[in-house]
Design a protein around this nucleic acid. Structure first.
Lengths: 239, 239
DNA sequence: ACAAAAGTGTTCGCTCTACACCCATGG
DNA sequence: CCATGGGTGTAGAGCGAACACTTTTGT
């Protein structure tokens, strides 16, 4: 057999392997009632019927992974233009009843206030779950979730993505609480404020809370333009 | 139609989508002649015939992604138990002549001395390329390589993976050179040594270089046990 | 003796950490 | 007037950056 024939044969064999399914699983994080939460749905697939699972679907043959992730997110939440980031692809054998399916996990961060506005229309079974009390998820979703949570914890120390989880206007205490919950540590109030304000990534709105039974807190917002500037010139950020 | 029928239908439709190919592309890094290098092969697939490409193959239906990555690495280098880490999955449309193929990119770091010992048997066209002078790779491999290189640069600042690229016994100057090449910066010799030695991750072997036309340097080796200890107790590492 | 790389300490500024009290509001 | 969370500064320790000369070997 000639060398070119061998190559043709190799390519023919390779095409026999195109029988994979590819799914996208979205790990959708929100922050509410002072807790970090993840959005889960009820699984309708044997042998996991009734168990909680991440929000996932098969990727269509004519859409990119990013498009699939955005589609899934929109179907569940009614939201577009939400923070979305690929984390890792899971490809062990027998992880899915359909056959050989590899799953690409995406982290998504959204402001729960937006979710509430957009999710009243759908009657699906999606619910927010406190991340500290999860067990017995469908498929290998427990592993996926742990991996994605670790990624979030690492990333939140290095980039100002925490803002994606807060309302447009927030107080420094809310921000500190968010970090404490994600990282699972207590932070010193004065040091935290100094560090955050020195970065100049948040803007003092000169507004205050109202109707609170204590001294009203100042409201701030995230300065995305300044963030992009810093990023181009080599951002350094540490918790 | 009943609800359970709808669910069955949904699952049938989903199975129609299982026509993906999944490939693994290995970005195999080595360090030699004081340069960071990547292993490339000649592509034999239209329309990229003759162009340089990453080392990639289709994943078999009965192997995991990790197994595929290890298989590819072994076929090209004859090496097992090499540092291997998933980086990202690339899934745009029309990136591959076979049809819809998503590719999972893996970073691999190896000691080039080991490679030389194991690769004499194969007659393939793999060659090491200086990472600073690459262009016109096949497929979307230029993008994959850039993503993987950025990951390496980031990771090398946070974890002691640089040792994977050096011989068992190395000098502090070699180590410093490695960091300088990967990061593309110059480092202060005294400060670098202080920082590295303070971490206690390397062991003074009480041996010296021989046959060098200058004062012989001390040889060190990486202390993997101590690294695992530190990791468990929350390793902090910075360049 | 000379070329070439190895090896070694100190100073200064900055950053991180620990820590305690007064303030503004609603009830 | 009391309960609740908001808001503020300083001192000490540790860390990172800058910097120049002596040592050892081969030729």
């Amino acid at each position: 057999m000639e060398k070119t024939d061998l190559i043709q044969l190799k390519h023919l064999e390779a095409k026999q392997k195109m029988k994979f399914g590819v799914s996208v699983d979205g790990v959708i994080f929100g922050f509410d009632e002072n807790e970090l939460k993840v959005l889960l749905i009820r699984c309708d697939m044997e042998p996991y019927v009734g168990q909680w699972s991440l929000v996932g679907e098969m990727v269509n043959l004519d859409e990119t992974l990013e498009q699939a992730a955005n589609r899934i997110l929109f179907n569940q939440t009614g939201l577009k233009n939400v923070f979305l980031q690929q984390v890792k692809t899971f490809g062990i054998l027998d992880r899915h009843p359909y056959g050989r399916v590899v799953s690409v996990a995406y982290n998504s961060l959204l402001k729960i206030e937006d979710f509430k506005l957009n999710s009243n229309s759908n009657e699906n079974e999606a619910h927010w779950h406190d991340i500290t009390t999860l067990e017995n998820l469908a498929f290998d979703h427990m592993e996926i979730l742990n991996t994605c949570l670790n990624k979030l914890r690492k990333q939140v120390r290095e980039e100002p993505i925490g803002f994606e989880l807060l309302p447009e206007k927030f107080t420094l205490s809310q921000l500190q609480n968010l970090y404490e919950r994600i990282l699972g540590v207590e932070l010193d109030k004065r040091n935290f404020r100094k560090k955050i304000l020195k970065m100049k990534l948040i803007v003092d709105l000169q507004e205050y809370q109202t109707n609170v039974a204590h001294r009203p807190a100042k409201l701030f917002s995230f300065d995305k333009e300044r963030y992009e500037q810093l990023r181009k010139s080599g951002l350094i950020f540490d918790l």
